[in-house]
Design a protein around this nucleic acid. Structure first.
Lengths: 154, 154
DNA sequence: ATGATACAACAAAAGATCTTGATGTGTCAA
DNA sequence: TTGACACATCAAGATCTTTTGTTGTATCAT
């Protein structure tokens, strides 16, 4: 069960941002580290991380809302565990960034030596600013907006 | 050439935080998306992202300092490109979080049904608080601090 | 019932990040 | 030269995140 959001949906970037944001804090990474061994109750995490209860609660909420952990109530205790599916999303999103697109107005791969043609960076982009010189590849530009709406995969 | 920082070094979490923080912003993800096609100059990114120059410059700096992009000057232009090694770190760090540790005071895998023993979550943790009942596994606790200093895979 | 424990949620303050609008520097064409 | 361009950098303010202390709710042992 994948929880990843396809690249071209409106929420695509938002989902990635939420996921990576949840991972961009030492306390939260430490929590996830502790959960590698299996589920733990909040009180355990509190002891080991030596963090105030409300602080821990806050960070657990961030992780929960990002889908990185699940919680389970049992009597007085709340047990938190890693959501492995969501960890897989990290790798999905990372490999997305790796995957080269079909270049639209992009320079390399097959780097174009613009300075040799005396044309600016990607030719047609510069054309908009009044300099109309074709690049060596003659690449056309069609509203390339990077990660969204112009995806090779997803 | 890997740029990842081993788990047990002092800067381990800091490096992960810096990397994930750089990824936790829509503008920056859009930039990385645009760079999938190869290197681009700042002016191109500016056009396509429709972002103020100083704003873009700020985000490029964050990406650069996180090691996710490299820049190259050529005449008036600065070309930015993705650093693939650093993208690999994302996957390294993600799979680290996946890898189960040898449980020290952790509950599942092989989940211990604490409520059946009427003992609290991980037994010895609770003992510190004055409840001394051994768990089914009899797990001992030895300063498990999660991600740091208690790693299975360095 | 009473009191202790485990936790979530909230509000206010503190801190970090992001945006915006300058200002400065190097490059290049005219 | 002069002026236009392509940046980086900075300072101020806006905005977002995190911490801290407090309050509230549910569970449980006594």
């Amino acid at each position: 069960m994948s929880t990843s959001v396809p690249l071209r949906t409106p929420s695509a970037l938002a989902d990635r941002v939420q996921l990576f944001h949840a991972l961009s804090d030492e306390t939260r990474l430490a929590i996830l580290g502790m959960l590698r061994g299996g589920e733990r109750c909040v009180c355990d995490l509190q002891d080991d991380l030596d963090a105030a209860q409300s602080r821990l609660s806050f960070h657990l909420k961030v992780l929960r809302e990002a889908g990185l952990v699940r919680d389970r109530k049992e009597g007085r205790w709340s047990y938190y565990a890693v959501n492995a599916d969501r960890l897989a999303d990290i790798e999905t999103y990372a490999s997305e960034l790796r995957a080269p697109r079909i270049a639209k107005g992009a320079a390399s791969p097959s780097p174009v030596l613009h300075h040799l043609t005396k044309a600016p960076p990607t030719g047609l982009t510069r054309a908009r600013r009044g300099i109309a010189i074709a690049t060596a590849t003659g690449a056309t530009k069609a509203g390339a907006k990077g990660l969204v709406g112009d995806s090779c995969c997803g």
